[in-house]
Each structure stands twice: as C-alpha cells, then as structure tokens.
C-alpha cells in the first residue's frame, strides 16, 4: 500500500515516507499534525462506530440508537505505546459501491487518504450483512482490522461467533468488543498498533466466486491495467470501476494521471451542484 498511485511514481523511499502520506491526507482535510499513524473507522450505520470512537479517544461524541446519526466526520487522537494515532470516524455506509455522498466520502478516504490502518466496525449479531462492507474494503486496502462489536448484544440474542475461524477466513485480525462497556478496547488498540507498525501482516481474502463471465472480464481488464501501470497497488479495484463505467477513473487513465485521483473528489462532487430542478427555486 505504500506504492504510489502514479504512472511515474516518486521514488519508493518517497512514497513510503510519512510526509508524502501526510500530504495526501491533508488534501482530504485531515489535520495530521503530530500523528505517527492515521486510522480510519468504517462500518455500517448503527453498529456502534461512534461508541468505539469514543472508547478509543476518550471523547464523548453523542451516540444514539438509530442509523445515520453521525452525519459529520469526527476526528480524534490517542496514544498507544510510544506512537501517536489520529483516528477519523467515517460516515456509516452499507457498501462502498453505491453512489451516495456518504459512501464516496468513506471510499475516497480509504482509497486516497491511505490510512495506515482501516478499522471496520461490524455488528456481531448481523454478521453476514456487515461482512459485505469488510470484503469491499479488502478490495481497496490490505491493512484492515475488523472490530467485532456488539458482542454483548449478539450473546443476548443467543448468537455465538467463532472469532478465530473468522479471523482465519478473513485473513486479518478480528477483535471482539463490547464498546459500550469498554470491553475489548485494549485488544483493539493492540491489534491496530501491530498492523500499523507492520508487526502483523494482513492477507485479506479476495472474492473469487464471481460468475465466470464476470471473473473473466475482471481478470482481462485487471491484466491490461496492470500492464499499463505495473506499480499500481490496486489494479483490480481500478478494473472494477472501469467495468462499472466510472467515467472519472476512465478519464484519469486516459490522461495517464491516476495519481491525480488523490484529490478530495467527494468534496468536489458534493460542491458541484447539478441544477436538480426545472424551476429556478433551488437552494
């Protein structure tokens, strides 16, 4: 993930240095002053992301039991060991494929901000729905920690999760927590620290069961993209976007300028107001 997204990449040393990385984050409006690592917090709506955020940072962002409560991005910090971390709470999303502004913000942050670790908070009691997002995050980044939250609620509902098996299947650390009661937060910190410092290397599971024609199409385009830009870390993701007809990615490829994607596009898309109404009484 430290390789650059550019056809003429900066020297490897440059791309992996903290300043280069910090510049990317600054473009996305994150103040990285004094932080050694940046952690993104993603997850479905209403899985206790804000609670995990509060538990990690000691802040008291208001929490509530309804989906979509967090409408603004929150940032906080914590220290673990001798490292300082900056943590960004992304809006809750069900997926990274769809096209709402929230999902773009979350996706672009993981893609272009290139956080050192992405923590995906999942609801242990509705795991299959939540793993969907985890698998999509895997398409973009390797450095993922899954926070299996609401373990208390799952237990209350008579649901048991085999954490070790899940971790083995996913190929990334899985930490069970009950953030409301502060349980498991220390383990989560430790896991984040290990992934951030490289002590743990993630080998996330890739989706391999696409229908044959889809698989063939993805393979063909990925192959060509990789041939064109051998140093692109997530060629497969670019291929998926091209097959989905993402004009912005196509245009960047055409310009030979994939690195230029590393601008806060969600913000740009949000500020580019399309006149949605016929009558001139739009806000």
């Amino acid at each position: 993930m430290t390789a650059a997204l550019s056809p003429t990449p900066p020297a490897e040393a440059c791309a992996s240095c903290a300043i280069y990385h910090a510049a990317n984050l600054r473009k996305l409006g994150v103040d990285v002053e004094g932080a050694d690592f940046v952690v993104a917090l993603a997850g479905n709506p209403n899985v206790g992301k804000s609670t995990v955020f509060n538990a990690l940072t000691g802040l008291r962002q208001h929490t509530g039991n309804w989906p979509g409560k967090t409408v603004t991005r929150a940032e906080g910090g914590f220290a673990y060991g001798d490292r300082r971390y900056k943590i960004v709470d992304l809006p809750g999303t069900y997926s990274l494929l769809a096209t709402s502004v929230d999902e773009q913000v979350a996706r672009d942050f993981i893609l272009f901000g290139r956080p050192d670790v992405t923590v995906v908070v999942v609801d242990a009691s509705t795991l299959e729905r939540n793993l969907n997002l985890v698998l999509q995050v895997f398409e973009i980044t390797d450095r993922v920690v899954v926070c299996l939250n609401l373990m208390d609620e799952a237990r209350r509902r008579g649901i048991e999760v085999d954490v070790r098996r899940l971790a083995r299947d996913l190929g990334v650390p899985v930490v069970p927590t009950a953030a409301r009661y502060g349980r498991g937060i220390q383990d989560l910190l430790a896991a984040v620290h290990e992934v951030a410092t490289g002590a743990t290397v993630c080998r996330p599971r890739r989706i391999e069961r696409e229908p044959p024609e889809l698989k063939a199409a993805i393979a063909a385009v990925t192959e060509q993209v990789r041939a064109l830009h051998p140093d692109l870390p997530n060629a497969r993701w670019v291929a998926l976007r091209l097959l989905d007809g993402d004009e912005r990615i196509a245009e960047a490829l055409r310009r030979g300028d994939l690195a230029d994607l590393a601008r806060p596009t969600a913000a740009a898309a949000a500020t580019h107001e399309i006149p949605l109404r016929e009558e001139p009484n739009r806000p």
Binding site: L127, E128, R129, N130, L131, N132, V134, L135, Q136, G158, I159, E160, V161, D162, V163, R165, L166, D169, L170, R205, I207, R209, E210, P211, L214
Partner: peptide, 17 residues
C-alpha cells in the same frame, strides 16, 4: 457475489445455540 461470499463466511463463523 460479495453478498454470497459474506453469507458463506458468516455461516462458517456463526452458531446460534
């Protein structure tokens, strides 16, 4: 596809005693 995969993974990890 992703949903199918997520469902399979969840089925392997989740039990409901």
């Amino acid at each position: 596809t992703i949903y199918g995969e997520a469902g399979r993974l969840a089925d392997r990890a989740v039990t409901r005693p």
